[in-house]
Design a protein around this nucleic acid. Structure first.
Lengths: 188, 188, 188, 188
DNA sequence: AATGAATGAGACTTCATTCAT
DNA sequence: TATGAATGAAGTCTCATTCAT
């Protein structure tokens, strides 16, 4: 019967969305299943019909988040503007993604410092970071920067720091900061 | 009696140090008071003679951390080298502090995303950030940068991002990245 | 429709068999309804069409088990061998039943100590035991034993203990033990 | 300070004694920590100051029970009566122990059928049984029985069955049954 | 007849905190 | 001052059972 599948899907989505919101707001540990269930307007135990544990729910959030980011980047590549440098495009895309998936990024930035939380995530997060850095390096290499390896580390840090501040502060002028950053690298 | 005061001081220091270590390692929520007391070799009851709650302990960590940082910055100013730009000095000092107080920075970066945890901290953290940004702005202004406000935001983000990556990754070449960053701003 | 009735019968049998298997293996409390339904490949909801509770399922197991035992004993009586004492026949039948319905006996022996679990069972179990003891007493009386009442208690205990050990241990030589027991009582 | 130790001991004993009572009555699974705490008149969480888990509490019960039995047997050996056969003495001691530690035996007989519950116990229980059987075999050997191995299995079963019935039924005349059993083996 | 989504009480366990000694 | 026994609220998770479809 199809109805069941729809209800199932709805419940799962409500749980994942609510959990993302609360985890990113309060942190993983400080958010209780009870809070999630109440805010998602489902019963306390329902989560456990679909996820083996609270941790599994967190992993699902990251699974979806990673996929979204991946897709969004691919999409961005397809629509690349002709007269814009690769570095500029990378930064612009990051900014766009930050705005679109703000909660996910907040969760990511809040959780990545904690050694203990979810070992499975650590690896995943680090690999993704490594990937981004590599991409930046290639872009800088293409743009003719000397020492692209080190330059990539710096640019990655700048972008990441900007992201942190955007996530942390209200009314952070990320567009302006990003523009300035782009100018610095385009000017070469 | 002087002996008691010394012991008291020692116990408090052991508690604060251990708490910092564990909080920065596992996160505030995931670290129990019991773990801290046991690792600091102080009895649970005694601990509550010194700190009236877990939160109080966290606040004391931040009090000390902030003071340390403040002092260290002052100290740095005193020993300012003649032929080094203010921007360069700021960055160098930050790197030095990161290395000296790594655990504290890790805790700070791990906790600052969480809206809920300890509201008292939020204000303190934000004020400190504002202070640093202002200082950077002054330095950039002195150095003749146009738009020092926006430039400060970007440089602060770059420094902060670099710090995050240093705290996050083993063997991050922070000295090299910092040098490169300095070069970019000194070259003007 | 006949087809439905057959399917119904099959589902019920699968449920009862699976429940017996799991109850005897893990204990009544430690076995969840879900496990039973899944292993029997019957949906959770359907199961509640057939049994209105977990306890009802347990009761059905005992209903069937008792009936099986009863029938088997009757059957044994019909085929009684001429030159074998009644005591010997009783023991032989018990051994045969143990082998045939091992899971049921295991469940019985595992559950009968628990005062709380399913009060309805207690009475049933005790009555059945009383019946067996009476039968043994008659057999011993026939065989000319003095104090048949007390002798019956002892023989019943011996048989029951042997059964326990058979259920408990792998490779228990129940045939040999039973033969020895028979010899003791036949020798008079 | 000594007072603390006494309180600690008292709480632990209350917990262990109450748990033994309730486990033996209702079964391990069907007894909740809450029930134990309430009946022992301590707070819900106290158990976890002294035992890592419910299972650990069960293990402690078995540790104490086994030790008690061991000591009691040793004690019995010391006071062995001159003109009583070893077999008779073994049976008498078992009866005495059954009466003294009825709850523990009930728990043991109730739990030993369950494959799942506490794997650590299974081994312990089986080893203890093996030990008893060996002892019985030696006694029977001394008494001149042929096939002492098989005879031991039967006698062990008889004693065990008698124990089960004593534990199961009110007013079971265990002394009479035991006497009859002794007579059968002394008569040879 | 049949499904499995949904519920919420209750299980075990952890934890910050209090308090008698 | 110093100890750690004691508390009970709250956390995660399981479970028998109900019910809409």
């Amino acid at each position: 019967m199809r109805k069941n599948e729809i209800k199932r899907e709805q419940s799962i989505n409500a749980l994942v969305d609510t959990a993302l919101k609360l985890f990113s707001q309060n942190g993983y540990e400080a958010t209780s299943i009870r809070m999630i269930a109440k805010e998602a307007e489902v019963s306390l135990g329902l989560m456990y019909n679909y996820f083996k544990s609270k941790e599994e729910l967190l992993l699902e959030i990251f699974r979806r988040g990673s996929e979204d980011i991946h897709m969004s980047f691919e999409e961005g590549l397809a629509n690349s503007e002709a007269n814009v440098s690769e570095v500029a495009q990378h930064i612009n895309q990051t900014v766009r993604l930050l705005k679109e998936k703000k909660l996910f990024w907040k969760l990511l930035h809040g959780i990545r410092m904690q050694t203990t939380v979810v070992h499975a995530l650590k690896t995943q997060i680090e690999e993704q970071a490594k990937l981004i850095e590599t991409k930046i390096k290639q872009n800088l290499s293409t743009a003719g920067f000397p020492h692209p390896e080190l330059e990539a580390k710096l640019l990655f840090a700048s972008i990441d720091g900007m992201a942190s501040h955007y996530l942390l502060l209200d009314n952070y002028p990320i567009d302006d900061v990003a523009s300035l950053l782009i100018r610095k690298y385009d000017k070469q």
